[in-house]
Design a protein around this nucleic acid. Structure first.
Lengths: 279, 279
DNA sequence: AATTTCATGAAGTAAATTTACGTAAATTGT
DNA sequence: ACAATTTACGTAAATTTACTTCATGAAATT
């Protein structure tokens, strides 16, 4: 279990001096890494041995182990999108891209509105039909999402064709949920489709790579994703990663909420077994 | 920038004794955290001060800072994949999913073979044609990749249909690169397609969510992705994230390698402007 | 009220890291 | 080719840092 969690749990059982240490650590865990034991002791108003005893009480060998453990489990400061240019080594470019994705996920973690998320899960659980709309790169995400969600046993569609989207959206009703995916919330077609779906009575959930956009007011609920990338559209990779992550979370939560759904999943899994060589 | 990457980059400029240190660290970064400086010195066959000088050369204050940094950037064995169950709150599930993705990216960062990556970029730069094959969830990744790469101005296809894949693969030649995507490297169809492509003379790059699989020996080059998820197929979300990240990196590096390609991209961008409301 | 227990810090110890310095090897210039 | 200079690296000393022992005083118990 994580050190910070362990500290939190042990907190009530600690003596006054040791509790001061615990509170100081919980207040700013990242700072500890730069302290030497004496500095921390001073900050807490206790002595060195108290720090050591505290560390041992939470199951560590000593202060050094605390520092190393904290370094290991603390979220790294959110990486602002690092730009790359042609002089960079492949390894460097790779690193920059991966960092960008990680940073985007970290931002997502901090930004997602939990209540909104829960409401979205509610809608999805009760939906008789789920449609995923997106164009371009978001179309891929839509397809991927449909690929997951259709296993819930609910009717799912991911139409990438405008015409199909139009007639499908206009046939929806109040038991339908639409997931509208858009990087910038300004693509004409997705806006039109969302408007149609909304007019037909469906609940429209926007997953949009921006804070404000023409698409926002058309949605019944809109997740605005972190968008630190000031890059041209084709280079905005992280948005898609974040969209997928959010959809994953929605999917799993919806899945766990409903045991009937889990049975469906089991049946699907069995039917897949014969397309593999092994297993 | 990450310490390990910095070490890799500085490697050629290091003197013999210091290089020994660098190599030892790269061989097993996780082990360093438990060493004291003298232990590491012995393992490398050098003296303590050499270690310190090495640390300073890569921009750190000393050995302690190296340990703390390594602890910070190495994938935590515990955190990589937290299991979830129906009792968990939505916020917790969300967190677990995002953590899983982040952890997977971290592992990827540490595991990707840089030389292989560069060779892959070489192949892609010189390819006259690139084909992406995948089924199921990997089909979505294939489509996404095709969507990016086709903007390089190179002929790209992502056939999800088995028949199309078969005839397309058999029409390839030595100027073609095939990217074979598979979560477990055991799907019969993808194996057959890769075999056909290889026989036709194309270079097959596997991006596989496993270390060993029936698909591996059929590839001219295979990226084995970190696969910490002991979950059923439908729940293996991270593999897809990691595949996308790797493809992103391949795409950007290929793009930056070739200025002609960048011009193509500029032209594509302009042609997209009129499908948006704004901008 | 006396005794015990326990929490805590002062002082000291041990260990690990870093600096200073010297030597040998490599590089450079003549 | 040989001397001069620079560089590479290890020995040993110094310093920093972490940890231990033990004494003290407070709280709890008898």
């Amino acid at each position: 279990m994580s050190i910070l969690l362990r500290i939190k749990e042990q907190l009530p059982q600690l003596k006054t001096a040791e509790r001061k240490v615990a509170e100081q650590i919980l207040k700013d865990p990242a700072a500890i890494i730069d302290y030497v034991i004496t500095e921390l002791a001073e900050k807490c108003g206790v002595s060195d041995p108290t720090i050591v005893r505290f560390c041992q009480k939470i199951g560590l060998k000593g202060f050094m182990e605390l520092k190393l453990n904290l370094a290991g489990e603390l979220p790294k400061p959110v990486q602002v999108h690092r730009s790359v240019n042609e002089d960079d080594s492949p390894a460097r470019i790779m690193d920059a891209i991966f960092d960008g994705h990680q940073g985007a996920l970290q931002s997502l973690k901090n930004q997602v509105d939990t209540e909104m998320f829960e409401k979205a899960v509610d809608w999805l659980c009760n939906a008789k039909r789920i449609e995923f709309y997106g164009f371009g790169a978001c179309g891929c995400v839509a397809t991927d999402a449909q690929y997951r969600f259709c296993r819930l046993g609910v009717a799912c569609n991911a139409f990438l064709d405008v015409h199909q989207q139009f007639w499908s959206a206009s046939l929806l009703d109040s038991n339908s949920v639409v997931i509208a995916l858009s990087t910038n919330g300004a693509t004409k077609n997705i806006i039109e489709t969302s408007r149609l779906a909304s007019k037909a009575g469906a609940r429209v959930i926007g997953i949009i790579g921006r804070n404000k956009s023409p698409l926002h007011p058309l949605c019944d609920m809109a997740f605005s994703l972190p968008c630190q990338e000031p890059a041209p559209a084709i280079m905005r990779f992280s948005t898609r990663i974040v969209q997928l992550a959010l959809l994953d979370a929605l999917f799993v939560t919806t899945l766990l909420r409903n045991s009937q759904i889990k049975e469906n999943l089991e049946r699907v899994r069995e039917s897949l077994s014969d397309i593999f060589f092994e297993n």
